[in-house]
Design a protein around this nucleic acid. Structure first.
Lengths: 217, 217
DNA sequence: GTCTATATAATGATAGAC
DNA sequence: GTCTATCATTATATAGAC
């Protein structure tokens, strides 16, 4: 029924050849970046290099198919695993579920390379944060931001950018493929405490900065 | 003869050929990423492709020379233009001074590609934030963080990652080279207000999250 | 559908003339 | 120092056999 959202792991035999190639491409692109050759992808998929272009037309067509599939997978993960909106709920769900590790790797590469997937992911994150803020304000746990949309953009940019920078730093320090679940755990260990501190009390001792800013409007 | 990419002012006449090649490489790498060929750099420098490798040994040697020069430039900018430590003072100085625009572009590419320059830049940013926090606490304008080093890391990761993600989003939306001073202005326009709000009041209405966290220790 | 073989282009690097 | 010419490699993409 929902074959389109099937997971790659363990179902190599079940999928059509184009789908197997696409899934292999997501893994290889995620591990080695988009500069990797078609040959490496063909080898990972267990097919000949010519067959890749036969099914996807070109390397760019293959990448678009990968982008689209990752997008669809994220939608599925979000729908099935994210009950309460949190700024990073979708990302955490993706990272914590082992089978989705290739998608996090692919996403990280997409953020590094730039492109439409990065932009649409960011817009989705912004929308998620906005929903999270609205619910929190309604529930009384969050202070109402002066400009909810601007606050959502700020949080999406800084949390998203911070998370991916953290992953890049992890990748740069240990050479070799990144263990994303381990990296997420480290991110939580190191960043959660300062984040809660900031989001509870702020950092300034008084409100002169804020007052000045509001007075200028 | 070759007007493909502008080289920093005055360097064409004054500098030695290796320095001119290196400066051209910083511009071209910054505009088009590290996947660009040696030929494009040679053309931008107005020399033959063979001469590039004659002076730098290899493309990787050239990139290392660029990395080192950007590192040195950042040190200079910091020493000459940054009086008061701010989390983003060095970055702002680099961005605001027109002739340093290629360095911001190169840095952005380095952050995307990952590598030693990204790591050392991040470590410098972390140290800067830590100094900023210490001075602010001493002056009474900043609340003392529970763990100053952890707070500095958090702020460096999120401000740095957020800034570079913002630049990447700008680059992804308008195709073509990014106007970094314009992007910095947009970043300030969109992000300063929410940042001040967060850093003044936080976002949570009470301190249960923080209390829970502190109680767990 | 799938493969092997190949066309075409671009790459990093080098050799040798001047 | 600097250039031209060329090497060997690799890339994407395609053609044709099965």
């Amino acid at each position: 029924m929902f074959k389109g959202a099937a997971v790659p792991e363990g179902s190599a035999a079940d999928l059509s050849t184009p789908a197997r190639i696409r899934d292999a491409a997501i893994v290889v692109f995620g591990e080695r970046g988009f500069g990797v050759g078609v040959r490496a992808i063909a080898q990972a998929a267990g097919v000949s290099p010519g067959l890749v272009n036969h099914h996807f037309g070109s390397k760019d067509g293959l990448r678009q198919a990968c982008d689209e599939h990752v997008r669809a997978t994220i939608r599925t993960v979000k729908a099935e695993h994210v009950r309460h909106p949190t700024p990073d709920a979708t990302l955490r769900a993706l990272t914590e579920i082992e089978e989705y590790a290739p998608y996090i790797a692919y996403l990280t590469q997409s953020f590094q390379a730039g492109g439409t997937l990065m932009v649409s992911m960011f817009e989705q994150m912004t929308a998620d944060v906005e929903a999270y803020l609205a619910l929190g304000v309604e529930a009384g746990t969050l202070r109402a931001p002066t400009d909810p949309k601007a606050m959502a953009r700020f949080m999406a940019v800084h949390n998203g950018g911070g998370f991916f920078l953290f992953l890049q730093l992890s990748a740069a320090r240990n050479d070799g493929p990144v263990d994303y679940r381990k990296a997420l755990r480290e991110y939580a260990d190191q960043m959660m405490a300062p984040a809660i501190e900031i989001y509870t009390h702020g950092l300034f001792t008084d409100s002169t900065m804020l007052d000045t800013m509001l007075a200028e409007e």
